[in-house]
Simulated scan of single mutants.
Amino acid sequence: MVGPAALADATPYQVVEGNKVDAGTLSGWRTWRALACERCHGAQQEGAVGPALTSSLKALSKDEFKNVVLHGRIDKGMPNFDGSKMVVDNIDNLYAYLKGRADGAIAPGKLQEAGK
């Protein structure tokens, strides 16, 4: 059995009131926005040309997510982002943001830093 502390450690984001998040998760959201990922994955990560990340992140492990984002799935239209300093530097934060969306903890739309 996993205790509450272990579960808290496993959650890569902190969110209050649906749109107030920790600094790292906010950085992940900013990375999402800067790279215009919504062009393929939809403004609310619900999918468009690319898959719905709100569903995908329920099944993908963090390592699988990082592999897909950094190395791409060229045959399926997903480019690799291992040449993007912003993505490489924020890959854990991007995962935190998208995992929070998939978990239903983070609301779609504009985010702000919690406590500010």
Results as ranks from 00 to 15, higher is better:
33 R>K: 15
34 A>E: 15
35 L>D: 08
35 L>A: 08
35 L>Y: 07
36 A>L: 15
36 A>N: 13
36 A>M: 14
38 E>K: 12
38 E>H: 10
38 E>N: 11
41 H>D: 08
42 G>L: 11
43 A>M: 13
43 A>C: 06
45 Q>W: 08
45 Q>P: 02
46 E>D: 12
47 G>C: 03
48 A>L: 14
49 V>A: 09
49 V>H: 05
50 G>S: 06
50 G>T: 09
52 A>W: 03
54 T>W: 01
55 S>W: 11
56 S>P: 00
56 S>D: 09
57 L>G: 02
57 L>I: 02
58 K>D: 09
59 A>Q: 15
60 L>R: 14
60 L>M: 15
62 K>L: 06
62 K>M: 08
63 D>Y: 01
63 D>C: 03
63 D>I: 05
63 D>L: 12
64 E>R: 11
67 N>G: 01
67 N>L: 10
69 V>C: 00
70 L>H: 01
75 D>H: 04
75 D>F: 02
77 G>L: 07
77 G>D: 09
78 M>E: 07
78 M>R: 05
79 P>E: 06
80 N>A: 13
80 N>R: 15
81 F>V: 14
81 F>A: 04
82 D>Y: 07
82 D>R: 12
83 G>K: 08
83 G>W: 06
86 M>S: 05
86 M>E: 13
87 V>C: 00
88 V>N: 02
88 V>I: 10
88 V>E: 02
90 N>A: 03
90 N>C: 02
90 N>S: 02
90 N>Q: 05
91 I>R: 04
91 I>Q: 05
92 D>M: 04
93 N>G: 01
94 L>W: 02
94 L>V: 10
94 L>H: 01
94 L>I: 11
95 Y>M: 07
96 A>M: 05
96 A>C: 05
97 Y>W: 08
98 L>K: 07
98 L>I: 14
98 L>V: 14
101 R>N: 06
106 I>T: 03
109 G>R: 12
109 G>L: 07
109 G>D: 09
109 G>S: 03
111 L>K: 08
111 L>E: 09
111 L>V: 12
112 Q>R: 13
113 E>T: 04
115 G>P: 04
115 G>D: 08
